[in-house]
């Protein structure tokens, strides 16, 4: 009997997992007969994303060959900034006529990244919010970018809870951050909270701090960002210098009502979940029941 019930729950999970908005689903019985489900959003990768990755490789190669286009930075900085600029412009272009693009840059520092991304977005309707953790850091940015159309300034300390600092969850289409080495798991989780469902995190390493990119990719995945772009590729000489640009999509937000209707078309009535809860991460049961590495700890 118990195994029948487990099999039934697996069936519910498989049905929900087949929906394009669902990244993972866990079903459970509430009482004897009521099925409930928990789902986390998927991070779809589209044809346009693949095109961006391809175009970015060309832009990156060109940036290394041809100095000068992105200011005074060395080859590593040029590389990273050129790719990041291409990525944000691509995002803006795709959104087309969908209203103002809201960009937030966390830890903008002295504005090295800002100075490249703001012009990259000049052809689009964009609100670029430049943030730093302290008023004195922000003053540097204010001086540098005062009067630039569409550029705003705000205090934001990513080491602290963002809600307490006056930032609404999911309020920005693009969130930009540099210095990936300084982005711990909790910092990434806060950045994810700021990104709208389906929006992007763009991380830029313009110096040696991109060397820890393997760990970064792991942390970004842990925070729920699916990589759409991660350059340079392994083995590229620039990788050894520390350049790294990462573009990750934040999960979409499944619509519980739609999912119930979707499930009702695919499951017998007794298995259709009475309620579906959308969560950041489903608490899955053990997925790795003992792979080749099992038993070492």
């Amino acid at each position: 009997m118990i195994s029948d019930r487990r099999a039934a729950l697996r069936r519910v999970e498989a049905a929900l997992g087949g929906h394009p908005s669902v990244g993972a689903a866990v079903a459970a019985y509430e009482g004897e007969r009521t099925v409930v489900a928990y789902v986390q959003g998927a991070t779809p990768v589209t044809k346009a994303d693949l095109r961006l990755a391809e175009a970015a490789r060309e832009i990156a190669a060109k940036a290394v060959r041809e100095p000068g286009e992105t200011g005074s930075s060395g080859p590593v900085g040029r590389y990273a900034l050129a790719v990041a600029a291409a990525a944000v412009a691509d995002f803006a272009r795709r959104r087309g006529r969908a209203g103002a693009l809201r960009v937030l840059e966390a830890r903008a520092g002295e504005g090295e990244v800002t100075a490249v991304l703001v012009p990259a977005l000049s052809a689009y309707e964009a609100e670029y919010l430049c943030t730093e953790a302290t008023e004195s850091c922000l003053a540097v940015l204010r001086r540098r970018f005062a009067g630039r159309p569409g550029v705003g300034f705000g205090l934001l300390d990513v080491e602290e809870d963002v809600r307490g600092q006056g930032y609404a969850p999911h309020s920005h289409h693009l969130v930009v951050v540099s210095g990936p080495d300084r982005c711990s798991g909790p910092v990434l989780a806060r950045l994810r909270e700021l990104v709208a469902p389906g929006g992007w995190l763009v991380s830029v390493a313009t110096s040696a701090d991109g060397r820890g990119r393997a760990e970064w990719l792991e942390r970004a995945a842990g925070a729920g960002f699916a990589p759409l772009l991660s350059l340079p590729d392994e083995g590229d000489p620039v990788a050894g210098l520390g350049a790294h640009v990462f573009v990750g999509r934040s999960p979409v937000r499944p619509n519980a009502r739609h999912l119930i209707e979707y499930a009702a078309r695919r499951l017998p009535p007794e298995l259709v979940p009475a309620s579906i809860h959308v969560v950041d991460r489903v608490e899955g049961r053990e997925e790795n029941g003992g792979g080749p590495d099992a038993g070492q700890g």
């Binding site: 589209t46 044809k47 959104r95 969908a98 999509r249």
Partner: peptide
């Protein structure tokens, strides 16, 4: 709502 579309093509 073009604003929300991510181009999944479903």
């Amino acid at each position: 709502e073009v604003e929300r579309c991510i181009g999944a093509g479903q």
